[in-house]
Write a protein that binds this DNA or RNA. Structure first.
Length: 170
DNA sequence: ATAACACCAAGAA
DNA sequence: TTCTTGGTGTTAT
């Protein structure tokens, strides 16, 4: 991917900065950062040279994601334009995750089967872990085969919180 | 090459 | 029930 200029918008949610980054082509990155983080400086270091700027045109997307985080209603999330880069395997996993509806869960092993790579459960977990856009690509809906919720980049507590919000779990 | 993983199934206690 | 153990595929070093 090119070092396209990155813009961002942020809001405070759950004691952290919810940060949404975009290129000219779509959302490329969502992250939760400690309140002490200098967001622009952090993103600059992460994405290369140019200093990112706040982009007010991301306001609608931000509020839609916040609405989802508060209510569990994910209407319109899957229609958000993305600009993510990944290996072919990761893209296969991510696009399969997009098919999981709100309130549903599947196991890493089942997802592996669905992409035609039935012994790759652990690799599927790796692809979930490298999902750059949590919530939009709902990797929190992929759980362990034994019913435990499993790991999550934003913390297992957040994963359970989302699944409860969606009514997928008690 | 190899080590690190958000896993899994089976088996022991 | 919890725990080990051996088996996996992909990715980054």
């Amino acid at each position: 991917m090119k070092d396209d200029r990155i813009n961002y918008i942020s809001a405070v949610f759950g004691g952290k900065h919810l940060v949404i980054c975009s290129t000219a082509h779509g959302i490329c990155h969502i992250e939760m950062l400690p309140l002490s983080t200098d967001i622009a400086a952090y993103l600059s270091k992460l994405h290369g040279n140019a200093m990112p700027a706040v982009d007010p045109s991301l306001r609608d997307i931000l509020s839609r994601i916040l609405f989802y985080l508060k209510t569990g209603d994910d209407t319109g999330l899957s229609a958000i334009k993305l600009d993510v880069c990944g290996t072919q395997f990761q893209r296969n996993v991510w696009s399969e995750i997009m098919k999981i509806k709100r309130g549903q869960v599947i196991s890493y092993g089942e997802l592996a089967r669905r992409i035609g790579n039935p012994t790759a459960a652990r690799a599927v977990a790796g692809a979930c872990a490298s999902n750059p856009v949590p919530f939009i690509i709902p990797c929190h809906r992929v759980i362990r085969g034994n019913g435990q919720t499993g790991g999550y980049g934003l913390g297992p507590l957040m994963k359970r919180r989302l699944l409860k919000l969606e009514g997928a779990i008690r």
